[in-house]
C-alpha cells in the first residue's frame, strides 16, 4: 500500500506544474518584427514579464495555435487572410475596447477591413510589402524592375525566394495579370506552370531573415520584405529595394488574442502599450515597416519618414495588391506548392 502511495506521488511529480500566471504575457510573433528594447520597456513600466517566441510563417503559427487547447499564447500577429480564417474558426476572442484606449491613434484606412469587419478580433500592427531585393554592387541598379525579370536565364541558381506559398504565387499571378488572391483553379495552375520555369533560378527558400543571405554575399537578388532591406542597409547600403512593375505584395499584420490565451488582461495591456505613438515609432525605426499608428508619424526622424522603402508613394500602393483569404482555393495552392518543392 505504502508503495502504491509512493508510486502515485511520483506520478503527480511527473504532471506539469500549473503555470504561474499573473505577471506574464506570452507573445508569439514573426522573427525580427519587434525591437527587444520595446519588450524591456514594457516590462519596466508594467512589471509584466514578456515570454517571447517567434515563427516564420502564418502556417506554422496557425498549426501551433490549433494544437494548444488551453494556456496558450496571449498575443499573436497573423496576416490579414489568417485573421479572417482564425476568427471564422473560433480561435480568436473579441477585443475589449475599454482596455485599449490607445486605439484612437490608428489609421482609419487600415480599420474595418473585410477580413475583420468592425475590428472585432484584430487591430493592425504594421503593414509592408514584399518586393525585390537587389545588391546593386553586383547587379546594376535598373537592371531589375519587375517580377518578370527574375525569370531571366542569367540568374540561374541565384535567387532567394520567400518560403511562403502565397508570396511566391503572388509573383506569377501578377505577371499573368491575375489577382494575387485568385480563387480560379485555371489561373492558379497557369501561375504554377510559370513558377516551374523559375525553379532553375532559385538558390534557396528562406523567410526567417531573408536579409542575412544578402549580407553574407550568398545572394544578390530575390524576394524580400521592405523592412528587411531597411535593416540590411544599416550594414550594407548597396542593398536596395525595388517595387516591381507588376505590383508588390502588400500585407498587414494584426494583433489578436487567441481564445486559449491565459492572461487576457495582460494581453490587452501589451497591445495598448504597442499602440502608443512613442512605442510605434521605435518599432518603425528599428524594423523598417510602416506603422498603423498615425500619431507616430510626426515623431519619426526625417530620413525614416521620407524613405520610400518604408512609406511607398501612393501610386506604388495602388499598383500593389493587399493579401486576402483565398478560402476553398487554399488546397489547390497547397497542392501546386508541394509539387513545386518536390521537384516536379
Amino acid at each position: 500500500m505504502v508503495h502504491y502511495v509512493r508510486f502515485l506521488l511520483l506520478g503527480f511529480l511527473l504532471l506539469p506544474l500549473p503555470a504561474l500566471a499573473g505577471g506574464k504575457v506570452y507573445v508569439y510573433n514573426w522573427t525580427e518584427y519587434l525591437p527587444e528594447a520595446v519588450l524591456n520597456q514594457f516590462t519596466e513600466e508594467t512589471g509584466i514579464e514578456v515570454v517571447y517566441s517567434n515563427y516564420d510563417s502564418n502556417e506554422t503559427m496557425y498549426a501551433r495555435l490549433k494544437l494548444v487547447q488551453k494556456d496558450g499564447y496571449d498575443v499573436v500577429f497573423p496576416s490579414t487572410y489568417f485573421v479572417n480564417k482564425m476568427g471564422r474558426e473560433g480561435l480568436l476572442q473579441p477585443l475589449d475596447r475599454e482596455l485599449l484606449p490607445n486605439l484612437a491613434g490608428l489609421d482609419p484606412q487600415l480599420l474595418d477591413k473585410p477580413y475583420d469587419p468592425g475590428n472585432r478580433y484584430s487591430l493592425p500592427y504594421m503593414w509592408g510589402s514584399t518586393g525585390i531585393g537587389v545588391n546593386t554592387a553586383v547587379i546594376p541598379a535598373g537592371e531589375v524592375t519587375a517580377w518578370e525579370d527574375l525569370w531571366q536565364p542569367r540568374y540561374e541558381r541565384q535567387l532567394l525566394l520567400q518560403d511562403d506559398m502565397r508570396e511566391v504565387f503572388h509573383m506569377a499571378l501578377k505577371i499573368k495579370g491575375y489577382s494575387s488572391n485568385s480563387r480560379e483553379p485555371a489561373e492558379i495552375e497557369a501561375a504554377f506552370n510559370l513558377l516551374k520555369k523559375l525553379m532553375p533560378n532559385v538558390l534557396l527558400f528562406n523567410s526567417d531573415s531573408p536579409r542575412l543571405p544578402f549580407l553574407a554575399g550568398e545572394v544578390n537578388l530575390g524576394m524580400i520584405w521592405n523592412g528587411e532591406v531597411w535593416m540590411a542597409r544599416q550594414e550594407n547600403p548597396d542593398i536596395d529595394y525595388v517595387y516591381p512593375r507588376e505590383g508588390a505584395n502588400l500585407w498587414v499584420d494584426s494583433f489578436v488574442i487567441p481564445t486559449t490565451a491565459r492572461n487576457r488582461e495582460n494581453a490587452h495591456a501589451f497591445i495598448n502599450f504597442m499602440l502608443r505613438p512613442d512605442v510605434a515609432r521605435l518599432c518603425v525605426e528599428e524594423n523598417g515597416y510602416a506603422t498603423a499608428v498615425l500619431a507616430a508619424l510626426p515623431l519619426l526622424a526625417e530620413e525614416v519618414r521620407s524613405s520610400p522603402i518604408i512609406f511607398p508613394p501612393a501610386e506604388t500602393i495602388a499598383a500593389g495588391e493587399f493579401q486576402s483569404d483565398v478560402g476553398e482555393a487554399l488546397p489547390i495552392y497547397q497542392k501546386f506548392w508541394e509539387q513545386l518543392r518536390t521537384g516536379n
Binding site: 518560403d163 525553379m199 532559385v202 538558390l203 534557396l204 527558400f205 528562406n206 518543392r341 518536390t342 521537384g343
Partner: peptide
C-alpha cells in the same frame, strides 16, 4: 545547407 529547394522525406 541545401536552401530548402528540394525536400527530403524528413522535410515532407
Amino acid at each position: 545547407l541545401g536552401g530548402a529547394r528540394q525536400l527530403l522525406v524528413g522535410n515532407l
